[in-house]
């Protein structure tokens, strides 16, 4: 992993909701061109972390740097303009707009707007299912298709880093497999991917490097292939060691 530089760096990040501290000194390094995964259960702080990276929450202390530029505390749309975007948990699609319009909205930023036809075409070729339905309202899509549209929309913004939050939540295994295949293709095309998952095995399988979060802290990290799955699982489930 040392051959590529890091693109997104999180340093000693602390986040509070009022009196409640949600993140404790979280540090991470997302390497360029890799798939990094964050594994954690509900309440582990991973969504808080993502929301803070995306400027939805403000950090109490610590920094988030993208290509050596501090982006912590910036407005979400500015962070997106700087090259990070997220396909959030649940739905971020525009229900009362067509699939095509949803994707065209991805090309909102000036640099993408110029190439909007090309970028939307790229998204369609990655997700051919969406092309078939391009004139339909997004509200008519199935759960899996919504997830794909959400990712496709994020790709059209032509980001350097794409964050995918819980993309497998509530989906059938066949569809999950399909979506992970797409993630691989996206990464192969040169995009840095940050996956966030609850499922240990799947995350380790589909990523290059992993961080395991428990109760707002990073408790384990390592090259995905080298991390012993059982130990990750016990950390994850809080058996003995970390509870």
């Amino acid at each position: 992993m040392s051959d590529t530089g890091s693109i997104l760096k999180i340093d000693n990040l602390n986040v509070h909701y009022g009196d409640f501290q949600a993140l404790y000194d979280v540090s991470m390094e997302i390497k360029k061109g890799r798939v990094t995964s964050i594994i954690g259960s509900n309440g582990s702080g991973k969504t808080t972390l993502l929301n803070t990276v995306m400027g939805i929450n403000k950090p109490t202390s610590g920094s988030i740097t993208l290509n050596d530029k501090d982006i912590s505390g910036m407005r979400t749309s500015k962070i997106v303009a700087d090259g990070v975007t997220m396909s959030p948990e649940g739905s971020s699609i525009f229900e009362d707009m067509t699939i095509k319009e949803n994707l065209l909205m991805g090309a909102y930023l000036p640099h993408a707007r110029k190439r909007k036809t090309e970028l939307v075409e790229k998204a369609f070729s990655l997700f051919p299912d969406l092309r078939e339905k391009s004139g339909q309202l997004a509200s008519l899509l199935s759960g899996g298709q919504r997830q794909m549209l959400s990712i496709a929309k994020a790709i059209v913004t032509d980001p350097q880093v794409i964050i995918c939050d819980e993309i497998s939540l509530g989906l059938a295994p066949v569809i999950i497999k399909d979506i992970y295949k797409k993630i691989k293709e996206i990464n192969a095309a040169g995009m840095t991917v940050l996956l966030v998952e609850q499922e240990v095995k799947r995350s380790l399988k589909h990523s290059d490097y992993s961080y395991i979060m428990v109760k707002g802290r990073v408790v384990m990290e390592g090259v995905s292939g080298e991390l012993p799955e059982e130990e990750v699982s016990s950390a994850y489930f809080g058996i003995n060691k970390y509870a």
């Binding site: 404790y24 109760k215 707002g216 970390y242 509870a243």
Partner: peptide
């Protein structure tokens, strides 16, 4: 309230790491 609570705050996570 905070000054009473402050030392308590890291309590849980600390005990968590002590166990390791």
């Amino acid at each position: 309230r905070r000054s009473i609570k402050a030392p308590k705050l890291p309590d849980k996570p600390e005990s968590a790491s002590q166990n390791t």
